[in-house]
């Protein structure tokens, strides 16, 4: 995913953003299900938002959709205590991590996530613990709580990978460059 060394300084990182209103937990599930088939090994989703915003709920929807696509159903337990849960969906490894209990990037490195960035689909909760170690090509999903009980979802990622994906997620095609 990284540009060649010589091109690094010249690369202009253009992000694209999509914003969605999620009125109910079911709409969060639906977003996860629509995004799931578009993900491929090497993709990382950074799931940001306060406790109770629906990060795990969203991750479960993505994992469940990928497992279902392989005709499988499995428990998708919370990774809060185990830190990392892995799933095999066909040839693809899914990694669901909750970094809340980590102190910082050094701890995250011990989890072996660096090896996973390129090989697996990674869903990372509390990604701020990664510091600058978060993969540059990641899609950043920020969930925030609205006063009416719904959630706002803001998705941001490098346009070269995510523009088409985000366009697909927003039926109106409201993706800003």
């Amino acid at each position: 995913m990284r540009p060649p060394a010589g091109a690094a300084k010249l690369r202009l990182v253009t992000d694209c953003t999509a914003t969605l209103a999620l009125a109910t937990p079911d709409e969060t599930t639906a977003l996860g299900r629509r995004l799931a088939p578009q993900l491929r090994p090497g993709d990382t989703l950074l799931l940001d938002g306060p406790i109770g915003a629906g990060k795990s709920h969203f991750a479960r929807a993505v994992i469940d959709a990928r497992l279902r696509a392989m005709g499988r159903r499995e428990d998708i337990p919370s990774p809060t205590y185990t830190l990392v849960q892995t799933y095999e969906a066909g040839d693809v490894t899914l990694i669901h991590a909750d970094l809340y209990r980590l102190a910082g990037p050094d701890d995250a490195a011990e989890l072996g996530l660096e090896d996973a960035w390129d090989a697996a689909i990674c869903l990372i909760e509390w990604p701020d613990r990664l510091g600058s170690d978060a993969p540059a090509g990641a899609l950043h999903l920020r969930l925030s709580l609205r006063p009416d009980g719904g959630r706002d979802a803001q998705l941001t990622g490098p346009a070269d990978r995510w523009r088409a994906v985000l366009s697909d997620l927003t039926t109106a095609g409201a993706v800003d460059a």
């Binding site: 599930t29 709920h57 479960r60 929807a61 469940d64 159903r73 499995e74 428990d75 998708i76």
Partner: peptide, 8 residues
């Protein structure tokens, strides 16, 4: 059967 939030 697996325990899943989305029904069975």
């Amino acid at each position: 059967p697996a325990q899943l939030g989305g029904g069975k």
